[in-house]
């Protein structure tokens, strides 16, 4: 039997490999930023960096939630549609004063939680494939939203909504504070709490989790609720950023959030991943976007470069096949 005489030394050599896997992403991000800084002097300007982060914040919120769902072998395609729906909901109060903002938040979170509950119920209890369940939810929300707005939403919003994007507390943008708060709170839930452990167990082997006294259905449903709530909050912040309500607020966020999470090493096969690494994936994504923008490339070049870098980044640190 191998004696346990040198546990420290052994465990180090093992964790170096895994740590390298994680740092591959950081290295890539730093390299990307160096390239950006060289290619465009604007990149490192505080104004630009703040701008990048402001754009990153709502996506980051969605990715925090998406990570939970992917960890339990799912994925949520309805997040973007939910973001737009929440934005439309915000106008439903026809509020012109800031008193309504807490109400808007409460309503948005309540709606999101309900959507998450339905998604989770479909996946966990009815055994619908997550792809289909959330795709259907995406379409249904879209229909409901359009039906409500008649295709042309009004943009009556409390003036304070803009604060969500541009406001600062102690010089730090509020959206970043919120993202940091969400990431840390949910990061603790995921990586330190008992619920988090159960999430990893269910993602790794649902049947074994059940036999070890975990209720997999409950855990899965909770993950979908967390995901939707994160997306709902992200939707409000994105609304604050774009300023006007449209039926397509957040379009593309469903796939972007999945790409970011997967680039951040969250395995689509479940049971493996880290919220903070997923947020690094977000950083890579937005820096790429900003870089191609700063370089003044036309939109089509942006798309091409973005595609190449996404594949390259993923290959760089080998997101393993699911």
């Amino acid at each position: 039997m191998t004696p346990l005489d040198t546990p420290m030394q052994r465990s180090q050599s093992i964790s170096i490999a895994s740590v390298f896997e994680r740092y591959g992403l950081v290295i890539f991000l730093v390299a990307l930023m160096v390239v950006a800084a060289i290619a465009s002097p604007t990149f490192l300007r505080p104004a630009n960096l703040v701008n990048v982060l402001t754009i990153a914040a709502p996506l980051g919120m969605v990715v925090v939630g998406q990570t939970f769902v992917i960890l339990v072998r799912g994925l949520d395609l309805s997040v973007a549609s939910l973001m737009a729906t929440v934005a439309v909901l915000a106008t439903a109060f026809k509020a012109t004063t800031n008193e309504a903002i807490p109400m808007i938040f409460i309503a948005a979170i309540a709606l999101s939680a309900m959507v998450g509950l339905v998604n989770g119920w479909l996946v966990a209890k009815r055994n619908v494939s997550p792809f289909l369940a959330t795709l259907a939810m995406m379409i249904i929300l879209q229909g409901a939203r359009f039906a409500y707005t008649g295709g042309a939403p009004i943009s009556t919003l409390p003036p304070g909504m803009g604060f969500l994007a541009s406001g600062r507390v102690l010089g730090i943008p509020v959206n970043l504070i919120t993202l940091a708060f969400l990431a840390i709170a949910f990061g603790i839930v995921l990586h330190r709490s008992r619920l988090g452990r159960e999430i990893f167990m269910v993602g790794s082997n649902p049947k074994a989790a059940f036999l070890n006294g975990v209720a997999p259905d409950r855990v899965v449903i909770l993950c979908y609720v967390i995901c939707s709530v994160c997306a709902g909050i992200g939707g409000l912040f994105l609304l604050g950023y774009v300023g006007t309500v449209s039926n397509w607020v957040g379009q593309g966020y469903e796939l972007d959030s999945i790409v970011a999470a997967v680039m951040g090493g969250v395995a689509l096969s479940g049971g493996r991943g880290n919220v903070f690494a997923a947020l690094l994936g977000v950083a890579v994504l937005v820096v790429i976007n900003n870089l191609v923008l700063l370089l003044g490339f036309p939109i089509e070049m942006q798309l091409i470069i973005k595609g190449i870098i996404i594949i390259g980044a993923a290959a760089f640190y080998r997101t393993r096949l699911a």
């Binding site: 796939l255 790409v259 997967v262 680039m263 595609g307 190449i308 594949i311 993923a314 393993r320 699911a322």
Partner: peptide, 9 residues
């Protein structure tokens, strides 16, 4: 690389 990423890229 996961096919989702490859084909999306």
């Amino acid at each position: 690389v996961h096919p989702l990423i490859v084909t999306l890229g």
